[in-house]
Amino acid sequence: MTASSFDEALKRVLVHEGGYADLPADPGGATMKGITQRVYDGWRRRRGLAARSVRRIGEDEVTSIYRAQYWDAIRGDDLPAGVDYCVFDAAVNSGPAQAAKWLQRAVGAAADGIVGEATLSAVRAAEPVETVDAVCDRRLAMLRGLKTFRTFGAGWTRRVAEVRETAAGMARGSAGRLQPPAVVSDPSTAPKARPSDLRLGRTREGAGGLIAGTGGLAAIVAEQADRLAPLAGFAEPLKWTFAALMLAGVALTLHAAMARIRAGESLA
């Protein structure tokens, strides 16, 4: 793809991310245009700059952070049209590693969370619209399993639906006929966001940042929830048989993880 793909994708992502927010229910904390204070502090620290409120983040900093931490991480310039935006938005909302795993499982590649040459080859061999649908299905299935879905679920559902429609249009080559993202010229006239429309702030990259109390155990839970998502398409008897087997595996994984925690070992 080209740099213009990133520019268009970023515009659409920023419409969903909105402006400044600092909500108790959001584990990401203070956030501006989807960038948390923690991420902004780290970005400025690595460049020898003094820390400051994320509310004062510059447009050039916003663009640089999104490109380096999300777009480049999922190899956006190497993905087909539509798939690039679909995976980019998922990476922003849920972390690049988790978005990469959704993509890899959608195309039958090894789900290691790193988009490399093997993944890109599998993506290019797949049908783009089907890939978009598969990624969005997995993404929404995992979001529905989070305890914060009750608060943020309506907004997440609308977001994934918009991403699905827009990305599919891009994949079909009809993105030019889609309506551009809404732009509010006068913020004072914009309707107030409802709590259910607010995005989930990210803490760490990857699935662990999606669950309150981030870390290795949270990442394991999210990973197992994602593995259960494809069962939704199975016939009823088979679905429950496979679900029972997989849940048993989840229980064993969590039991082992808790044992390691009690022993003082790291899950990283």
Results as ranks from 00 to 15, higher is better:
T2Q: 12
S4W: 08
S4P: 03
S5A: 07
F6C: 01
E8N: 07
L10E: 01
K11Y: 15
V13M: 13
L14R: 11
V15G: 03
V15F: 07
H16Q: 15
A21W: 00
P24C: 05
A25S: 11
P27S: 03
P27A: 03
M32L: 11
Q37T: 03
R38K: 05
V39S: 01
V39E: 00
G42V: 01
R44P: 06
R46W: 10
G48A: 13
L49E: 09
L49P: 04
A51E: 11
R52K: 15
S53M: 03
S53D: 07
R56P: 04
E61F: 13
T63D: 14
I65Y: 01
A68R: 13
A68V: 10
Q69L: 06
W71S: 03
W71Y: 14
D72E: 09
D78Y: 10
D78H: 13
D78V: 15
L79V: 12
P80G: 04
V83Q: 02
C86L: 05
F88K: 10
D89Q: 15
A90D: 04
A91F: 11
A91D: 12
V92H: 14
A97H: 01
A99Y: 04
A99V: 14
A100M: 06
K101S: 07
K101E: 04
K101A: 10
W102Y: 09
R105T: 08
R105M: 12
R105K: 06
V107M: 01
A111W: 03
D112W: 10
I114D: 10
E117K: 12
E117Y: 14
T119S: 08
T119F: 04
A122T: 01
V123P: 02
R124Q: 04
E130N: 13
T131G: 00
A134H: 09
C136T: 05
D137Y: 08
D137S: 13
R139D: 01
L140Y: 06
A141T: 09
M142R: 11
R144E: 07
G145W: 07
R150C: 12
T151M: 10
T151V: 14
F152K: 03
F152N: 02
G153I: 03
G155T: 02
V160R: 00
T166D: 15
G169L: 11
G169R: 05
M170Q: 12
A171W: 06
A171G: 13
A171M: 12
R177W: 08
L178P: 10
S188E: 14
K192W: 15
A193K: 06
P195V: 02
S196H: 12
D197E: 10
T203K: 07
E205C: 15
E205K: 04
E205G: 15
G206Q: 02
G209R: 04
L210D: 04
G216T: 04
G216A: 07
A218Q: 08
V221R: 03
A222K: 05
E223T: 10
Q224H: 15
A225C: 15
D226I: 09
G233W: 02
E236V: 05
E236D: 05
P237G: 05
W240F: 15
A243N: 14
L247R: 07
L247G: 01
A248E: 13
A248G: 12
V250A: 11
T253Q: 00
T253F: 08
T253E: 09
H255S: 08
A256N: 07
G264L: 07
L267C: 00
A268C: 12
A268K: 09
